[in-house]
């Protein structure tokens, strides 16, 4: 393997981008299926956060509608950070990351597959956590609950796409477990705000956001940051 990965991508014999993504995705999902490290850790961690907040605040039905969106988002955030740290760290063993660098197609496909895989894990965690959450906080959404199916994935995508990117970015630093939240949280703040406010509007049904401005903002945020991450990932991957 003497050619640069980026040159290989431009050759006509290089495999299609989607098939590259699928190959990487299959690999990631298979590793997770065999170990179940990420999902188990995330699930238990998020459950603990939900229980802790519930005990710490002991909210009434009205208060819980007000704070539930924030607790749910923050629980997801903390849980994902613990898993995202492992997303690239597990590739360091046996120099897998170096081998991946030499694969054809460049980093963007690998990155996108990693994001898809992590998005899948976090979504599973949310799907399990959601009902538990509604029980613990005695929630009954007063707004259009079906919108949750749009808002939560959009917010999760924003979290996972940035988290995967910055996990790769901080992989070579000292104490990377600490560094990831330090970079990720400031960047994720606008998306967190949009996500919390739109979930809160749905739960309380107060109609404070009739034109779905926050949901649109979340969508715009997703598009902008996914584009930047895809464009810049090769730089991060090849940085020595």
């Amino acid at each position: 393997m003497t050619t640069e990965p980026s040159n290989m991508a431009s050759q006509s014999s290089a495999p299609a981008w989607t098939s590259l993504v699928l190959t990487h995705l299959r690999k990631d999902l298979r590793i997770e299926w065999r170990s179940r490290d990420a999902i188990n850790a995330m699930l238990f961690f998020a459950l603990l956060v939900v229980v802790l907040f519930s005990l710490a605040f002991d909210p009434s039905a009205d208060t819980s509608r007000e704070i539930a969106s924030g607790v749910l988002c923050v629980a997801t955030l903390f849980a994902s950070v613990s898993a995202l740290n492992q997303a690239w760290a597990r590739e360091l063993r046996h120099q897998v990351l170096d081998a991946l660098r030499m694969t054809p197609g460049g980093g963007a496909a690998m990155f996108f597959a990693k994001v898809l895989a992590n998005f899948f894990y976090v979504t599973i965690v949310q799907a399990v956590l959601g009902p538990v959450f509604f029980i613990f906080y005695n929630l009954r959404p007063l707004g259009d609950a079906s919108l949750l199916l749009l808002v939560v994935p959009l917010g999760t995508w924003a979290l996972v796409v940035n988290g995967t990117f910055f996990a790769a970015l901080s992989i070579r630093s000292r104490n990377r477990e600490l560094l990831l939240p330090l970079i990720l949280f400031p960047i994720f703040l606008p998306a967190l705000l949009a996500m919390v406010l739109s979930v809160k509007t749905i739960l309380t049904g107060d109609g404070s956001d009739p034109s779905f401005l926050w949901i649109k903002m979340l969508g715009g945020y997703d598009i902008i940051f996914t584009t930047i991450c895809l464009l810049l990932f090769d730089v991060v991957l090849q940085a020595e």
């Binding site: 970015l169 901080s170 560094l179 970079i183 940051f225 810049l232 730089v235 991060v236």
Partner: peptide, 21 residues
């Protein structure tokens, strides 16, 4: 902060990526 934490020659490219964000 990342400039302090990340060591080595790759740090500059990594910091530059963060600057874009």
């Amino acid at each position: 902060l990342i400039r302090r934490f990340a060591a080595g020659g790759g740090m500059q490219a990594i910091a530059a990526v963060l600057a874009v964000f």
